[in-house]
Design a protein around this nucleic acid. Sequence first.
DNA 1: CGTTCAGTTGACTAAGGTCAATTCCCGTGG
DNA 2: CCACGGGAATTGACCTTAGTCAACTGAACG
Lengths: 192, 192
Amino acid sequence: MPIQIINNIKSFVALSQEDEEAFIKILEIKKYAKKEFILQEGQVCDKIFFINSGISRVFFNIDGEEKIVQFFFSDSWFTDYSSFLIGQPTNENLQAMEPCEVVHLKKNDLYKLYETNPVFERVGRVMAENAFMSLMQLNSMRTNLEPEDRYLNLLKQRPELVERIPQHYIASYLGIKPQSLSRIRKRIFDKK
Amino acid sequence: MPIQIINNIKSFVALSQEDEEAFIKILEIKKYAKKEFILQEGQVCDKIFFINSGISRVFFNIDGEEKIVQFFFSDSWFTDYSSFLIGQPTNENLQAMEPCEVVHLKKNDLYKLYETNPVFERVGRVMAENAFMSLMQLNSMRTNLEPEDRYLNLLKQRPELVERIPQHYIASYLGIKPQSLSRIRKRIFDKK
DNA sequence: CGTTCAGTTGACTAAGGTCAATTCCCGTGG
DNA sequence: CCACGGGAATTGACCTTAGTCAACTGAACG
């Protein structure tokens, strides 16, 4: 029973019993091992993903280098909108960092729901709005803070993330090299 | 007659004659002089804006310094979602750089449309999706390219923007200081 | 004509990137 | 259970480039 995703949606849009049932019908739940790809560049992203459990990361390859965009813990949504909406191949990768359980929501099925019941149109709207707000926050972290402050900010805002995620991934997420993060950590530590 | 905004919407969602009329009723058109603020930080952003004509910029103040997020030319949408959705004061500014004609779409009016006619729910969804895609692109420009490449990229992608917008604004948009942009330009010029 | 502001340039600083070596840790296989 | 291999993290030396402070020029505008 995909209770988690339903509760998540209900936290922002009211669903009737029938809505719930119609929605549950189109869901598919898959399990992924560590390092397995949930979405891989080159594919067309025709789904929306919901992370039930586990940790995953989104990254893309820029001339041979992985650039991490975001980490997703349980209870998170993800899709590559530019691939999802336009139908072009994605250049993003969604990869399990620990064993993950992921709910798949197929575009075609979702669009049918859009047609038959406008409440799902609203669900889609709120998801896009939320995605926008998250990205805005991420964007402002990266553009308004110095590397050192980005790390301090992350330590403060999401200490559990810093605990559980390898340092070179965090460096990539902060937009710097592992060596630089290592030095930043040393600087911070020496100050104290 | 607000033809422009209607055509813009019709480019992604079909509207009936009645839909159109209902929509037009809630619009308000305002004119702004150069340097006038369309939205100012501290206000609650309870509107969505559509630029009919003119050029405007969005920026926020980070310890006394203006950081430009985006320039809007005619036929562009803007709102600060985090203020619009949550109702908290915005820290973004939308300012006319040249005389602007702007369509205002009030949140309350829009939400009434959402209730009475689901097609507008879809309009809202697509607007949020488009906003997300634009932001994603902006984000990747700023995080994946070196300052010099950001400028070269801008020159290539939006030369008319480089023409019409003062250089220190472009610097801010690219995330660098005016002096650095000046040196980058010199570097590029010397190479040729 | 003078004030103001944008743009350029110079000298200097700071901090991240790069290349390379070393250490540390962990998991795997013998 | 131990030894080995490989990736992660650290550190050093050096380079590159953006930031900072400051001076100067030039153009726009009143």
